[in-house]
Each structure stands twice: as C-alpha cells, then as structure tokens.
C-alpha cells in the first residue's frame, strides 16, 4: 500500500470529529473520498498531514509510520496536500507561489518542473508574474495543484478540486488529474460531485458524520443507487 490510514480519530477541542476512519491507496491508484458537506472529508485530509493536533490512530506512508511527524516532514516524505480553500499566497506571483512548493527531486516519484506544469495548466503559463490575489477561482485551483506538484510528491491529497468551478474548468481539472495519474502520482481525492469522481477514480470510500460507511470500486457503487441516494444525494 502507498498510504494506509488505520483507526483515525480526530478532535477539535472537545468535539469528536472522526471515528475510526480507515483508508488506503495503492500505488498509482486514484481513490475518491465521497461525502456531503461537513461529513469529515477535509478533517480526514488535514489529520493525515498532521494539521489537526488532536488525533489518534496510525498513518503509514510508503511503509513508514508518519503519525507522529510534523507536517513539513510528512510532506517532504512525498505526501503532497492540496487544501480545499486553495490557500494561494495572494501577495506572491504565480512563479513565486510555485517556488514555495519546490522540493528536490525524489526517487520513485515523477519529477515536475515549472515548464512541465505550464504545459499541464496552460492558463498558468500565460500569467507567470500575476499576483495570486488577482486570479480567478479556477486559475487559483490550478495554481494550488501545480504548487503541490512542485514538491514532486508520489501521492497527493486533493481536497475537493472541483468545488465552485465552471463546467469547462472542471473538465480541464479532470484531464489534469488523469495526466497526473498517468505520470505515476497516486491520488486520494475528496469530492461531493459524483459525476466528477466517476471521471477520475478507481475506488471509492464514502464518509458520513465522521465514519466511513461504504467502500468499493467505482463500478460497484454505480450498481448501488440506494447507497448513492442514502449517503450522497442532496
């Protein structure tokens, strides 16, 4: 397994948010974590990269237990994280934003350069010295993914990449994610949009109220409209 998460419990102050969450991602796989707003998707991701202080459980990345490691060390081990709210540095230009994400090349992970990323996201290439604060939501979403790829991760946590984007940009995003997969990046992606998840994922886990309540392949989920309606439909 590339990444396995066992018995993950997380808390914000006295509030218990995640209950024994189990997840795994195999080499080269795209796994979707589906769930409604507030189900615990972002908390799961933030817990995996160590941004939630109060948590228990075990997180193993490439055979190494990273549960107790600080965020920057987990990320440097090759586990990239793309936050849901994008967190673009608005005072920095596109190129400077990419520079913040840059890490040395890593054995066993695809290597990304600025030019390669500008090919993947052509829009970014046209606005290299634009300030992050002056970009549209879709452009910012591309930049935040590109910024994480600059760290040459072997696995990326993508938190709701399609959220709030126009259909045309969503399509570009799906294309970009499939390219990343083809290059050899394993991906754990959270989504509310089943249609989008269908385009990109191999396997699916559904989270509700902080608990994983379903797991299977994309095809299996397609065959179970009852599950879909119970846990995902609005």
């Amino acid at each position: 397994m590339k990444l396995s998460v066992n018995a993950l419990n997380s808390f914000y102050g006295p509030a218990h948010i995640l209950f024994d969450v189990e997840l795994d991602v195999a080499e080269g796989e795209v796994v979707a974590l589906l769930g409604r707003n507030g189900a615990g998707k972002s908390t799961t991701f933030r817990s995996i990269v160590g941004l939630v202080a109060q948590r228990s459980g075990r997180i193993v990345f490439e055979g190494r237990d990273v549960t107790r490691e600080p965020t920057h060390a987990i990320v440097r081990a090759g586990l990239g994280y793309v936050p849901e709210d994008r967190r673009i540095f608005t005072d920095l230009t596109v190129e400077e934003n990419l520079e913040v994400g840059r890490q040395p090349p890593r054995a066993g992970a695809p290597q990304w350069t600025r030019d390669k990323l500008f090919t993947l996201f052509p829009n970014l290439g046209e606005m290299r010295s634009r300030l992050g604060g002056r970009m549209s939501g879709g452009e910012q979403q591309m930049l935040t993914i590109a910024r994480t790829l600059m760290g040459n991760p072997s696995l990326v946590l993508l938190d709701e990449p399609s959220e709030g984007l126009s259909p045309k940009i969503v399509e570009q995003m799906a294309h970009a994610i499939l390219t990343m997969k083809k290059e050899g990046v394993s991906i754990l992606v959270s989504e509310q949009n089943l249609h989008f998840a269908r385009l990109i994922s191999d396997r699916v886990s559904i989270i509700e109220r902080g608990r994983i309540c379903y797991r299977g392949t994309m095809e299996e989920l397609e065959a179970r409209p009852d599950i879909r309606d119970a846990h995902l439909a609005v």
Binding site: L51, H72, V75, Y81, P83, F89, L92, V100
Partner: peptide
C-alpha cells in the same frame, strides 16, 4: 501570509 500552508508545502 499563511504559516500553515508553508508547512503543508514541506518547509520547516
């Protein structure tokens, strides 16, 4: 601007 995100990009 944002310390947490810098850490989440692998900077100590």
């Amino acid at each position: 601007q944002d310390r947490d995100t810098v850490a989440a990009l692998g900077v100590n």
